[in-house]
Design a binder for these strands. Structure first.
Length: 458
RNA sequence: GGCGCCUUGGCGGAGUGGCUACGCAGCGGCCUGCAAAGCCGUUUACACCAGUUCGAUUCUGGUAGGCGCCUCCA
């Protein structure tokens, strides 16, 4: 188990995770009013892989990624679709699960939904009212920002510089502009509502995360994550709610940068989105994952067709590496292997550097550089254990499948390949090329080598 | 206007006070019947101006440009 350091948004400093306690990670998931896009997939991938890495180091980790399924935009989108909002949200949640399943990274340990947390939300709001941190007004309940001295500490703002920007109708109900809603009374056109001490209504944004995080991880947990666009107001408000109610809340705040399209943040409201499902269809899951770990999680990441094609090429280079290794490992003189590449690092030190990069603020691009260094070394000279080490490194970033055999050729392809070999032996190259074209049409690429031809699935 | 971040070779993207990141693409080779894969070489990268320093892409200050949040947002 090595020391794992993470840059903390709240303190601005690098914090070391406590190895003696379970590392509870709460990452904000999507609001399900449409299919998720590549940008939404970034935190899912980053935090899934981060939890996987922690476990591989011997930490106990518990990953929670919520689904916010009550929201103004859900009402609006459901109305546009001519559906009930509950059914609409359920369908979008299912689509989210389906899309992220295709990433092949497994599921989080818990995926709580706001609609299944209403009782806890009502209880926390009541507690905040009792403590003087919130007040009821016209069936709504608002958080009294002035009652929480630490307000602004996460996003480093002063309250007087801020504006919660609530909808116009709420202006008259709030004591101060800065106050934000915890509970909203049911309004015209809203087809879901829950009973509460303040009348029928539904939770506002922010409060559900305070409740779900505590319910799944306890009042105090290690890491709270999410996109950097959630720092304010979402996470700032979560802190205000939870800490005002006496919960210590998260130790470290870990925010991922935005995915940019043409230099601008990809977002549903900008309309410059590229859906995750489409990216998976076009480039494959490995390329999508490889793309999302190609930059440091905290930095913005440029998105575009070229970037995705590059990810495809990277992933193909890794596949080719394993194809080559499969043949190389079958023979080989041990003494020859022992010499290995002169000056090349043994796989163990690459693996070590790989893990160290991940332990250092989860630096995936630096870690991947180690993978490619080892791949290059092993492509040049036989490096004993390289294939296994690369497979293990890739396993940690969800790309183990690149090491798997693509499947044996069928008998038809094998026969064609033999015919081509016969033709080549007879120097009948035009016939050999013709057969190669036929194989290509069947989805097989022929690669000749000193050890003979090889069929590769395209 | 407030807060924060960024500016690295054709593109993406790490990192460091002095040593080739890495990947993709291009060009030239090697290998090959040809191709693919792989390998080798290659196009004097660190926005600009000062300062600190023996030495700065890396530290400090400033200039220019860009981005994010301050409204829903991963």
């Amino acid at each position: 188990m090595r020391e794992v350091r993470i840059r903390d948004t709240l303190s601005g400093a690098v914090q070391t995770l406590d190895p003696d306690h379970e590392v509870g990670i709460y990452a904000c998931g999507p609001t399900v009013y449409s299919r998720i896009h590549i940008g939404n997939a970034r935190p899912f991938v980053i935090f899934s892989l981060f939890a996987r890495f922690l476990r591989s180091e011997g930490y106990k980790a518990r990953l929670v990624i919520n689904v916010t399924d009550i929201n103004d935009k859900i009402y609006a989108a459901a109305a546009r679709a001519g559906e009930g909002s509950a059914a609409f949200a359920a369908a979008m949640t299912a689509a989210y699960i389906h899309d992220t399943d295709r990433l092949g990274l497994g599921r989080p340990d818990a995926e709580p939904k706001a609609t299944e947390t209403i009782d806890g939300i009502v209880a926390l709001i009541a507690e905040l009212i009792a403590g003087g941190h919130a007040y009821e007004s016209g069936g709504d309940v608002y958080f009294r920002v002035r009652s929480f001295p630490g307000y602004g500490k996460l996003s480093n703002r002063r309250p007087e510089d801020m504006d919660q920007g609530e909808e116009a109708g709420a202006a008259g109900l709030k004591e101060e502009r800065l106050d934000f809603a915890l509970w909203k009374a049911t309004k015209e056109g809203e087809d879901t509502s829950w009973d509460s001490p303040w009348g029928p209504g539904r939770p506002a944004w922010h409060i559900e995360c305070s409740v779900m995080a505590e319910r799944e991880l306890g009042a105090s947990f290690a890491v709270h994550g999410g996109g950097s666009d959630l720092v304010f107001p979402h996470h700032e408000n979560e802190i205000a709610q939870s800490e005002s109610a006496g919960r210590p809340f998260a130790h470290v705040w870990m925010h991922n940068g935005m995915v940019d399209a043409a230099g601008e943040k990809m977002s549903k409201s900008e309309g410059n989105i590229f859906q995750l499902s489409e990216a998976l269809d076009r480039y494959g899951r490995e390329a999508v994952v490889a793309y999302l770990i190609s930059g440091h999680y905290r930095q913005p990441l440029a998105f575009g067709g070229r970037q995705m094609e590059e990810a495809v090429a990277r992933v193909e280079r890794l596949r080719n590496f394993f194809r080559g290794q499969a043949g190389a490992s079958s023979g080989g003189d041990p003494a020859e292997q022992q010499r290995g590449g002169s000056g090349g690092s043994p796989p163990e030190s690459r693996f070590e550097a790989f893990r160290e990069a991940l332990a250092d603020d989860f630096n995936t691009p630096r870690a991947m550089a180690e993978v490619f260094e080892l791949v290059g070394e092993a492509n040049r000279d036989e490096v004993p254990g390289a294939a296994r080490a690369v497979a293990e490194m890739l396993d940690l970033v969800g790309l183990r499948s690149l090491a798997e055999d693509q499947g044996a050729a069928d008998s038809e392809a094998e026969q064609l390949l033999q015919e081509r070999e016969d033709a080549r032996a007879a120097k009948d190259f035009s016939r050999a090329d013709e057969i190669r074209d036929r194989l290509a049409a069947l989805g097989w690429e022929v690669r000749d080598s000193a050890d003979g031809p090889r069929l590769v699935r395209r």
